[in-house]
Amino acid sequence: MDLQALWLTLRLAAVTTAILLLLAIPLAFWIVSTRSRLRPVVEAVTTLPILLPPTVLGFYLLVLLGQRTAFGRGIAHLLGHPLAFSFEGLVVGSAIYSIPFAVQPLTAGFHSVDASLIEQARLLGAGRFRILREILLPLSARSVLAAAALCFTHTIGEFGVVLMVGGDIPGATRTLSIAIYDQVQDFSYAQANHTSLVLLAFSLAALILLYASRPRNGAAHA
């Protein structure tokens, strides 16, 4: 077992999940509450990574974050090193790749809150931030948990984007999924099996946690 890759993967998943929740909560709130004509465009852009091949997304990110673009050079100047082939670059790539898994459950959760409750909160003087904090988030707690669990497991299992943006640098960008690829390339099937089982266990545990948080069928209709 490549413990360095395991630690890096967990760190990447945790940081990506935290960043995505911070971004996706206000974004989902904007999507459910705006009348802007830009809403379908924003929804399409945030859903795009589901349909886009990871290598395509990874390629464009690699170009964007590299030295060939002004953006990439600007970021490199700010950080003191290029984003591509670094942990920070992996976080950016992972966050973009997993954004639909954060925005979709949150949007569905916010939509499911009874509109009359939002109206009552408005009539009682609550502003947008208070409505989000005190009404929508508590009433969509399961959706927040679902978004976190999906982002975490999706990031843990990433391969294409991670490989394109981060390469395969031990201790810096080599995640568990890349370690499995390396182990298979070296015909170390037993090792690859152990590493794969760890990923499988993480994904299964996250899904069990997710479904355990839902009310049972009987309870939902009680």
Binding site: L117, L123, L124, G127
Partner: peptide, 20 residues
């Protein structure tokens, strides 16, 4: 004037209490 600044209370048949 926005709803929260109208100084108007509104109660419907459904009550609309915050369930949490």
């Amino acid at each position: 004037v926005p709803p929260g600044r109208r100084s108007i209370g509104y109660v419907t048949q459904q009550a609309g209490l915050f369930p949490h």
